[in-house]
Each structure stands twice: as C-alpha cells, then as structure tokens.
Write a protein that binds this DNA or RNA. Structure first.
Lengths: 237, 237
DNA sequence: GCAAAAGTGTTTCTAATACACCCATGA
DNA sequence: TCATGGGTGTATTAGAAACACTTTTGC
C-alpha cells in the first residue's frame, strides 16, 4: 500500500465524529449510527464521521460534508464540542477526532461508502447518566460512547439556550407538540403552564391563526418567527 | 530536509495553543506570549503551544507539557475550549490547533526553544469586545487574536462556575483581595456586599482565624477549603 | 354527556441586585 | 481624632417552580 504523503515530523490523522440527533415519528430521541464495514471494530456500530480533507476544508466544513453524505441533510444545527485524542483510541494509528453535535430533521439514513449500514437508534440516559441505545447500555466502537454522552449533555444544555429545537419541528406545530419535543430531548417531564410561559416569553414563536383539529378541542398552530427561521432554515419546502 | 513520516492519506499537523492567564503583582490580568524566532510571523508575538507528540500523548498532556516548558508550572486550571482548523491559518501547511485555557499562579516566563522571548502582557477588552494587549489592539501571529478572545470569554464564564480563581491567590488572602481578583479577571466592578454573600455561600473558603494587619482595621484571612485545594493543588508549598 | 386534550393564573421560593452606614486600627 | 479600608443587612426585583381547574371539541 503506497504511502505518498510524507512529513518531516509525525502527523496524526484528524477526523470529525458526528453525533446526529433527531426525533423519529414516534417522537423518540434517536441518534444516527453506522455499522462498520472494515476493521477495526468491523460490524460494530459507530458514529458517522470521517477524515478531514487536508488543505481543502476546515473541521466545520468536514462535519457538514459528512453530515450530507450520511443523511443528505443540508441545514441543521451543527456545533463543535470537543476533541478526543488519546493515542490508543484507534488501533490503526493516532487519530484525533473532533466531536460535532448535529440536530436535524428526521430523514432516512444512508449508508456511506465505508459503512455497511446506517441506522437511527433510540437513545436515553439512566438516572446515573449511563447512555442507553435501544434500551441497552451503549456498545459502540472506539470511544464513541464517551463522545456521544458528551454530545447529549451539550444538546440538553443548548436546547434551552438557542432556538434549535425547530429543526426537528414541522412547519406548523402546537405547543403540546413543542413541549413534547423538549421533553424527549431533555429526558424529563415539564410542567405545561411553566413551559408555555417560558417558550412564549422567548421571541421564537408566531401564531398562525390556524388550528389543528383532532378528536378534542382544536389547538392553536404556531410557526417559527422570521428571525429564527432564517438562522435555522431547514430545507423544509 | 528529510520527510521520513509517510501516510497513505494526507494528514494535518496538530498542535495545542495555550492561552495562559494570570494576575501579576499589580493585580493586572496578564496573558503569556512568546516572540517567534522562526518564520512564519518571525518576531511577532504569538500564543505559546506546540505540536502533539503523535502516538505518545493526548492533547491534554500536550498542553500540560507545553505549559511546563513555557512557565515551569505544574498544576493549574487547564481546559480545552475549541479547535481552529482553517486550512490557511498557518502558511506552512494545514495545522489544526486546539485551544487550551490555562490559569496559573504568576511566575517568570521562560522562553522555550522555538521562542526568542516569552513575556506576560496585560490584557483587557473594550466595551465592544475588542481585545487589547498592552492597551493596544492585539496584533498576534496566526489567528491567535481570535483564539485568545474565545479563551478570555471562556475564562470569564468559568471563574464564576468553578473555584479556579484560587490558583492565582496566595495561600491566605482577604475577601477584598479575592474580590479584586474577580474584578480584574471579569473586567468589571463588583458590589462588595453581594460579592461576599455570594462567595461565602459557596463552599470554597475557610477562615484561618488570622488577620492581615495594615494601616487600617485588620482583615480576616481566608484560605481554600480542603476539597477545593485538593482539586486545584497549586504547588504552593 | 363524557372522554380527551387544550388552555389558563396565582402563589411561593430563590437568586440577583441595589444600596449606606458603622467599625477597628495606625498614624 | 481622623483617614482608611474592613465589615455588615435589608428591601426589591425577576425568574423558576409548584400547583388545579375550566374549556372545547368529537364521539
């Protein structure tokens, strides 16, 4: 195998690892994993991600490119949260991975070239903070359980600070749906009245004037305010 | 120049850049810079830092090692805050730098091997957030102004969240001195009574029973509580 | 008329802020 | 005795949290 890229000093490989979260149809918090086609950790589930194109892109661009390759998703909340760099974390060579948190609208997973399969799995945390994937303690390749745990913690902080939840909401939604999204992401129940006060006080929402009709009392439909929807344009028609 | 380290795919160089803060004798907030001995940016001031020892250390260890080399300081608050990765940020090659925030006891700066000089400079920020070094708008090599600006922002957040201020305090100190340290780091004045309430409510301090005597009323001397001093052991005898 | 979800206000508590005077000492 | 910095308490406000009943609709 040729090794044409040579340096005066040793260089590590650098990759981004993506912690891609979404809410599925049943409003479960899901994360995207790929099943590895190659060693190491062949056939195990791992975070999507890939190596940076040296000299051609920065880490944000790398993460965005990988996200596109794995999900076809253009716009999303994408945020760097940490670098993982233990020399032994990848048995092949010293690989430094920069973790990215992504929150995207749910979409079919697409296996990239180096993955046998890409799939969304429901995730949750136990009371003591252990990460569960599909209800069982996460078994992931590399140090990806640690990375994902950090990402989820970051997501749960961010969800209150910035209007990122709207990337997983449909164009119109009721307050009950919005509350449910928050509850799922945060993994805790929220008080209805306090939630409504809190979210309406923020300058995020706009009433559409329309109603969602079901078998009960119709619910007011909201949409995202203009300023916010510009920031988090969702490729939603 | 030989290039003995070869890879199948291109690899970037990876370094840590250290934003080392301290308080000097006059209680000014200072940051440590080195004057570069080599191109690029020869003779310009830059952040200390250096390349990771591939396969032999992780980024935290790299940062800690560099800190030791530049300051002789063993223990300090040291915290990763972000990766800087634009392909053109270093003209030589694609270098990814991971920024570390360090807060250490003031100590003489020591020029490392690749620095002509190492020096502490007083830093502050304008109201609109511009970074001033020595009272003038910062002129630093690479993208180090951006990195340092991010670091300072992080420092100002952390200082309230965790008992890191004690790495710059002497073993015994008065509340007035402690308040002054907070004010300097945060770049704003604090209310004396509110500060005392706040800091005493935290479980950080212990009265020594001793007093500092000056030309005025003696001030109660405090020291750091046991739990805290373990976490932030300072190499102070 | 009843089941089901939508909607709504008030009280309580806590944390942050603003603010002004007396105290103990050295000179 | 006075200049100097050390030390203290209370009232106000804002935001978070707890909490229960009425409304509107489809069936």
């Amino acid at each position: 195998m040729p090794k044409p890229y040579c340096y005066e000093y040793p260089h590590p490989a650098v990759a981004t690892d993506l912690c891609v979260f979404s809410l599925d149809k049943e409003m479960r918090l899901v994360a995207l994993f790929i099943r590895r086609k190659q060693p190491p950790f062949e056939d195990q589930w791992a975070l999507p991600g890939g190596f940076i194109k040296v000299g051609a892109e920065n880490l944000d661009q790398c993460a965005r490119r990988e996200l596109m390759e794995e999900t076809g998703t253009e716009a999303a909340h994408l945020e760097q949260f940490g670098a993982y760099s233990d020399p032994g974390r990848d048995p092949r060579e010293h690989v430094i991975s920069v973790g990215y948190l992504a929150l995207i609208r749910h979409s079919p997973a697409v296996a990239g070239t180096d993955a046998a399969e890409a799939k969304w799995f429901p995730i949750e945390t136990t009371k003591k903070g252990d990460l569960l994937v599909n209800g069982r303690r996460a078994q992931l390749a590399f140090d990806h359980r640690k990375i994902l745990t950090d990402a989820l913690q970051r997501l749960r902080r961010r969800i209150d600070e910035a209007p990122i939840v709207f990337v997983v909401m449909p164009e119109q939604f009721t307050l009950a749906q919005l509350q449910s999204a928050f509850e799922t992401i945060k993994g805790e129940e929220l008080d209805k009245r306090n939630f409504r006060k809190w979210v309406i006080d923020k300058d995020w929402l706009k009433e559409t004037g329309e109603f969602q009709r079901g078998r009960q009392r119709p619910a007011v439909l909201f949409t995202v305010g203009k300023k916010i929807s510009k920031l988090y344009a969702q490729g939603q028609k």
